[in-house]
Structures are given as structure tokens and as C-alpha cells.
Computed example of a mutant assay.
Amino acid sequence: MLLSLGLLAAGIVALYAGAELLVAGAGRLALGIGLRAATVGVTVIAFATTAPELFVATIGALDVSTDIGLGAVLGSNIANIGLVLGVSALIKPLRISQIAMRRHVPFMLFATVLLVVLGADGTIGTLEGAIFLLTLGGFTAYLVSSTNVNPAVGGDKTGAGDGITLRAVVLVLGGLMALVLGSRWLVSGGTGLLSALGVSDLVIGLTVLALGTSLPELAASVVGSVRGETEFAIGNVVGSNIYNILAVLGIVALITPIEIASSTLRLEFPALVVFTIVLVAMMGYGGRLTRLDGAVLVGGYVAFLALLVV
């Protein structure tokens, strides 16, 4: 029990540190080769912050079961909406930009619906995985082609960059190593601890692993909210939820088919859809998330966790 707790704590810390290093390094590399700053924010950084879910889902699916990977993604997306945005809105109301409402939020809803439709038969296989990744490729291409950049912001160049630096490479490699170790520790510690208590793999993924992999998003969004950068908090969660479904489940499904239990189709899938629709409705009404909205989201997340253990 103590060993599992230690592995769990070490895994969470390593995942958080790895995500931070990977985000910093990926951003430096992308800018170094000439990608625009705004493009980096909605593509490279969004994917980098999803790396913990990708590593945990892949390693969990290979070492334990696909329930671990599916649970981590579903739980992480629900936690991103209910916990991350809920807590951020409680700290400071979050303003929703028109660009986010037009480009990113509708696609988050589309990705959620696509997951439910393709997984309705109880399996996400190679074909579904390929569809997810092709959809992600189309979305990323759309973002790159439609992103408007203000060259004066931060003094970033929009042409050729300053080249790849050793510091950026070291940050990326260090982040990847920390993510690999953290994923293994988190999966081992979380499954060992809850399995001893008789908890199923799916619930383990939905709770401990999902919360652990959502720490980078939680930390980044809370810090952004405290600093008044509320649009960053929104973009962080919306982008992460899109990549969690399309990239993480797409890659895992290509490696091994994901079996979906009937109980998941009855509870977790509807819960994800409800959280997503409620969030979109809140965003569309008044153009911001208020503290009351934040309280509702956090309350809904607590109720969801309660349903898991009933």
C-alpha cells in the first residue's frame, strides 16, 4: 500500500514536471524553426499538454487494459470542464473570445459527439482510430491556415526562426523522459492502490489517473485565471479536450482495439456529452463563465465522482 502511494505521488510529480518541460521545449523548437507564436499556442502547446494522457493511456492499455486508457481520457475531459474550468471561474470570471467560440469550442463539441457515435457499438478499433487522427489532421491544418497573427505581440518573428537550440532539445528530451517514467509510476501506483480496494480498471482511469494527468491543465488554467489571462484558461481546456479524444484515443486504437463496456455507454459517455453541452451553453450565454457557472461545474464534477463510487 505504501509503495503504491509513493509511486502514485512520484508519478503525478513527474507527469507535471515532464509536461512543463515539454511545453517549454516544444514552444522553443517551434518558434526556432519559424512557426508563428499564435500557431504554436493552438497546436504545439495544446498537443504537448495532452502528452500525460497520451503516455498514461498508451502504457495503461498495453500493460493493464484498454479500460485504463479510455477511463483516463473520459475522466480527464470531464475533469477539465468540471474541475479545471470550474475552479478557474471561481477565482475570476472567464471571458470567452469570439475566435474561440467560432473555431475551437464547436470543434470540441464535434469531437465529443464523434467519440460517442463511433463508440456506440462498444468498440473503437483501427478504423475509428484512423478517423480520429485524420479529423485531427484536418483540424490542425485549419488552425494553421486560419490563425491570425500580430507580429508585434511579444516581438515574435513570423518568418524563419533563430534555429534549433540545444536548450530546447534538452527540454523536450527531459520532458519526454519524465513523462515516460511518470506514466509508468502513475499507472502502477494507481492500479495497485485501487485494485487492492477492489476498484475496477475503468474507475481507476476515471478518477486517480484522470486527475493526475489533468494537473498540468489545472495548474496552467488557475495560474492564467489569477493573472487575468482568462482566454488562456479557456483555450487550454478546449484544446486539451480535442486532442485527448482525437490524438490519444486515435493512437491507442491503432495500437490495440478499445473495448467499451455497456456501463460506460450508459454513464460516462452521457456524462461527457452533458458536461460539454452545458459548458458550451454557459459560454454562449453572456460570452463568459461567471463564478456561479464555476460553482455549477465544480458541483457537477463532485456529483459525477459520487456516481462512480455508488
Rank of each mutant, 00 (worst) to 15 (best):
T147G: 00
K157V: 00
G161D: 05
L194R: 01
V187I: 14
T147L: 06
E231C: 02
L202W: 06
A178C: 13
G175K: 02
E231D: 15
G190Y: 07
L265G: 12
A141W: 13
N244D: 08
L179T: 08
V180R: 07
E259H: 13
A233F: 02
S183F: 04
G228M: 02
G198N: 09
L171E: 15
Y243W: 09
L272N: 02
P216I: 01
V252N: 05
L143A: 03
G190N: 13
A261W: 00
V169F: 10
G228C: 00
T256Q: 01
S225F: 13
L246K: 09
V274Q: 06
L211C: 04
L143M: 15
L218F: 02
I245C: 04
L246S: 08
A168Q: 03
S200A: 14
I242C: 10
N244L: 05
L194T: 14
Y243Q: 12
S225I: 01
W185R: 08
P151G: 06
A196L: 15
V238R: 12
L254I: 02
I234L: 14
G174E: 01
S263P: 06
V170H: 09
A219H: 07
G159C: 00
V149F: 05
T140C: 07
R167S: 15
A247F: 03
D162V: 12
G189D: 03
S145V: 08
V169K: 09
A233K: 02
S240Y: 06
A210T: 01
G159H: 01
E231I: 06
L186F: 09
G154I: 10
V170N: 05
L202D: 08
I242L: 13
V226M: 15
D201A: 14
S262Y: 07
S188F: 10
A160D: 01
I260S: 11
D162Y: 05
L179F: 04
A152I: 06
G235T: 00
A152N: 13
P151E: 09
V172T: 12
S200F: 05
I204M: 05
R184S: 11
R184G: 08
L181N: 06
I242A: 14
G239T: 09
P216N: 01
I255E: 04
A247C: 13
G159A: 00
V153I: 14
G154E: 11
L254Q: 00
V172W: 09
F139C: 12
G163F: 07
V187K: 11
K157D: 04
A233H: 04
L173W: 05
P216K: 03
L181P: 07
T230E: 14
G235K: 11
L265H: 11
G224R: 04
T256S: 02
S200V: 04
G235M: 07
A141Y: 11
S225P: 06
V170Y: 07
S188N: 12
I255M: 04
A233W: 03
E229W: 12
V252Q: 01
V172Q: 07
W185Q: 05
D156A: 15
V180T: 09
I260G: 03
L176A: 08
N244C: 13
